[in-house]
């Protein structure tokens, strides 16, 4: 792997700067107005934004097209998410090359939730590659100018590749071994699944030991009680602390909309100040803030880390 840096994200990470990233979700629509609007609100608050690729296997605007448009129109650097669920290795290669052509610089390589769990459950699941072999493919394209079959690629793209990790994985030792495998094949940064509990994070870092790629810890300040409750109930490996959940629940009783917003912000700032203070004592290189459509909370979070 070369030490060359192609993106702002990798530049800041390699300089040891504490990095914040955000998240943008293309929708089931014929345009990307919403994520562009959201990106504009995040400019200046985060270094780069992930653009999700059919999260939970709901089919939306292609993350490649969306990331290109967002980057072009808002200047926000994008981390293009790419899943193995819907594309075979040829289609993945085409999209990787396409990403280079469109000026994208970062890819987050994901396996992807099973298509049967999404909104088009009769679709044929692909999984020709998995997150590990997708990372290997991207590295091979960028570093060697070759695809998996060994075919030469003329003028290969300059891209960085990241991987996901699940600190709250039920079988942590298997997850740790897999994260190490992804680092071994060339992942250059890690973004974790959402974590709410500091003990979950501590156990993850302890088990992982020292690794030489930057890790951005996923956090999700919930804008509503329903969001927090969803994570707790339906997202594998994410446990929301009962106290936080309770405080969020109590905000539902506030009739006045403005007052409720204030109280939600207060609950989040209180909870995440403590969480981020704790984060300072971990090897985390930054924070991936997944709260979509909740940019007003970010300045307060960044202040904690200053």
């Amino acid at each position: 792997m070369s030490d060359e840096v192609y993106s702002q994200l990798m530049k800041e990470l390699s300089e040891g700067k504490y990095v914040f990233t955000g998240e943008l979700e293309p929708e089931k629509a014929g345009d990307v107005e919403e994520p562009i609007k959201a990106a504009r609100e995040l400019v200046g608050l985060v270094t780069a934004c992930n653009v999700t690729d059919n999260p939970q296997s709901f089919a939306y605007v292609s993350s490649l097209a969306a990331a290109y448009k967002i980057q072009l129109e808002t200047g926000m650097e994008c981390i293009y998410q790419l899943r193995c669920a819907d594309r075979n290795r040829s289609a993945l290669l085409s999209d990787i090359l396409g990403a280079g052509v469109l000026g994208l610089k970062n890819i987050l390589a994901l396996t992807g939730d099973h298509v049967a769990l999404g909104d088009t459950p009769d679709a044929k699941p692909v999984y020709d590659l998995d997150s590990t072999t997708l990372i290997a493919l991207i590295r091979r394209v960028v570093d060697e100018g070759k695809d998996l079959a060994g075919n030469e690629i003329h003028n290969p793209p300059k891209l960085h590749v990241g991987a996901a990790a699940a600190p709250g994985a039920a079988v942590l030792k298997a997850e740790i071994a897999k994260v190490k495998r992804k680092i071994k094949v060339g992942a250059e940064f890690i973004q974790t699944q959402v974590v709410y509990k500091t003990e979950v994070l501590d156990r993850f870092f302890k088990e992982l030991g020292k690794v030489d790629v930057p890790i951005l810890v996923g956090i999700f300040p919930a804008k509503t009680y329903a969001q927090a409750d969803f994570f707790d109930k339906y997202v594998a490996g994410v446990d929301v602390p009962p106290d936080y959940l309770q405080h969020m629940k109590e905000t539902k009783a506030i009739k006045d909309k403005e007052k409720r917003k204030e109280e939600v912000d207060r609950v989040n700032i209180e909870f995440f100040t403590e969480f981020l203070e704790h984060l300072k004592d971990t090897p985390a290189a930054g924070c991936h803030i997944m709260a979509v459509g909740y940019p007003r909370i970010i300045p307060a979070l960044k202040k904690v880390m200053e």
Partner: peptide
């Protein structure tokens, strides 16, 4: 998958 587990266990 040839290299699991996925994040969904």
């Amino acid at each position: 998958l040839m290299n699991g587990p996925c994040g969904g266990v």
